[in-house]
C-alpha cells in the first residue's frame, strides 16, 4: 500500500501540462520516466535529495498504467487529484462530442457501485 506515492504522481501530473500530456499519450513510459525524474526525489522539482524507498504496489502500477480510475478510487487514491488528472486528459474530447461535463458524469457512472457504501479510506 503506497497511497502517498500514487497521490504524489497524480498531484504532479495535475500540475504539469507536460507530464499530463505524456501520461495521456503513453502512460507506461510516462510513469517510468516520472519515477526516475521526480517520484523518488524529495520536494517538488528537486534533483539533489533522494527518497529511496518509495514504490508502487503491482496493483497501483497497473491502475496508473491502464488509466483505471475506478481501481484508483478503490485503492484509496485521493479523489481530488484523481479527478483532476482524468478530467485534464479527457474532458475536452468528451465535451466536443457529448457536451459540457459529460466526461465527469461518465466518471461518476463508472463508480455507481459505490453509491450508498462507505468509500475506501484515503488516508495515506
Amino acid at each position: 500500500m503506497s497511497r502517498y506515492y500514487v497521490n504524489k504522481f497524480l498531484f504532479q501530473a495535475d500540475r504539469s501540462p507536460e507530464l499530463l500530456a505524456a501520461y495521456k499519450a503513453d502512460p507506461v513510459a510516462a510513469l517510468a520516466r516520472w519515477e526516475e525524474d521526480h517520484g523518488r526525489w524529495l520536494d517538488k522539482n528537486a534533483t539533489v535529495e533522494r527518497t529511496t524507498w518509495l514504490a508502487f504496489t503491482d496493483e497501483e502500477r497497473r491502475a496508473l498504467e491502464e488509466h483505471d480510475h475506478v481501481a484508483l478510487f478503490e485503492l484509496g487514491a485521493h479523489w481530488f487529484p484523481t479527478l483532476q488528472v482524468f478530467v485534464g486528459m479527457h474532458e475536452k474530447d468528451y465535451e466536443a462530442t457529448s457536451g459540457p461535463l459529460s466526461y465527469q458524469r461518465e466518471f461518476a457512472a463508472d463508480l455507481a457501485h459505490w453509491r450508498g457504501r462507505t468509500y475506501p479510506d484515503i488516508r495515506p
Partner: peptide, 9 residues
Amino acid sequence: EIGGPRQFQ
C-alpha cells in the same frame, strides 16, 4: 462530492 459516484448531479 468530487471524484465519486455522486459528483456532477
